[in-house]
């Protein structure tokens, strides 16, 4: 087992242990904190596919995070009020079933990413960053100005959506759902990375001309990766809305895009468990330093600066050393 694999296990099992220790210590608040880490890590795992493997620096992933959140909020609201989502030509009702909500969140995010990706991936470098940001901002302002679902005030989910056979109102059970989804997406990411598609995607980042000269069009590979990446981040958004029982345009704001990117960079770009390490450090700092000073992000900034300047591999890079290439 490589050192990175050991660290991955430690991170994965460590996160799993937190809520149970919290329960024993009688500090249930930490369960929520661990759930936040799992969900934000998932958003990062999504971005890491595009950014880490494919080299697509998307500064617009908040769009997918927010769309996932609104999918949960809108479906739940319609289910709660027993108003159909669509009355004609066919009746579509809301849903308070997480599985349905996840599927809808994934499908809509994939569709939106297909459109955004098809346009933005014709550019590269700083233009790609700016255009993905622009799309996310468009969706952000749309959400603010759309009164049907709360506009600027957002939308409350009165009862957390359900999962067959589980009580989602129990913090531990909800944590386990989020944790399981995170692990499933990490597993999918690992398989993707090692697959034919993953090989092509990584070469699209390392040397797109080489990929084309091998007969594989970089654009198509990137577009599919962008769509999968968006779907995962959207799934995280749906869970996040359920965690807070609230969704608002702030989930779509560019700060969120930045934070998701920070998880990935802090943890180690392209490292499988990097987003988990990054999100965990972020939440821990927000909680402890945030308790001391309002300006805790100053320290975050300093750490981020050090990571970018001195350790390219992020936290995983410090702990596991240079990446071992297959």
């Amino acid at each position: 087992m490589s050192r990175e694999t050991v660290i991955n296990w430690v991170l994965g099992l460590g996160l799993l242990a937190v809520p149970f220790i919290a329960l024993m210590q009688g500090e249930p608040f930490y369960i929520t904190l661990a759930t936040r880490v799992a969900i934000l890590a998932l958003a990062g795992v999504g971005l890491n596919l595009a950014l880490g493997l494919g080299g697509m620096v998307s500064f617009g992933h908040a769009a997918f995070f927010g769309i996932g959140g609104y999918a949960a909020g809108i479906l739940a609201t319609h289910a709660f009020n027993q108003e159909p989502l669509l009355a004609w030509p066919l009746t579509v009702s809301g849903s308070s079933d997480m599985l349905v909500i996840w599927l809808v969140a994934i499908a809509i995010c994939a569709l939106v990413a297909l459109v955004i990706g098809a346009i933005t991936l014709r550019t590269s470098g700083v233009y790609f960053i700016m255009i993905t940001l622009a799309f996310a901002q468009m969706i952000y302002y749309f959400a603010i100005s759309w009164p049907a679902y709360g506009g600027e005030d957002g939308l409350s989910i009165y009862v957390r959506n359900g999962f067959p056979g589980l009580n989602t109102l129990d913090p531990i059970q909800f944590f386990l759902i989020c944790y399981a989804v995170l692990m499933a997406c990490l597993f999918i990411s690992a398989r993707l990375r090692d697959s034919r598609f993953g090989a092509a995607l990584q070469v699209a980042r390392q040397n797109p001309d080489r990929l084309a000269a091998t007969g594989i069009a970089p654009f198509n590979i990137r577009l599919v990766a962008f769509v999968i990446s968006a779907a995962m981040t959207g799934l995280a958004g749906a869970l996040f809305a359920d965690l807070n029982r609230f969704v608002s345009p702030s989930m779509l704001s560019w700060h969120v895009s930045g934070e998701i990117m920070i998880f990935v960079i802090l943890g180690g770009v392209g490292r499988l468990f990097g987003p988990l390490a990054g999100a965990a450090l972020f939440i821990v700092m927000e909680f402890y330093l945030g308790g001391i000073t309002e300006h805790w992000q100053l320290f975050l900034g300093i750490i981020l600066l050090c990571v970018v300047l001195f350790v390219r591999g992020g936290i995983l890079g410090i702990m596991a050393g240079r990446r071992v290439h297959a």
Partner: peptide, 28 residues
């Protein structure tokens, strides 16, 4: 592809001749 081994570089070419690269699950 500078980060890939020589073997994986050539494997990419072989992969291309075998058809679609949209295969997502089997480790190369």
């Amino acid at each position: 592809a500078p980060e890939f081994s020589a073997l994986r570089n050539v494997m990419l070419s072989v992969q291309s001749t075998q058809g679609s690269s949209f295969r997502f699950f089997r480790p190369v």
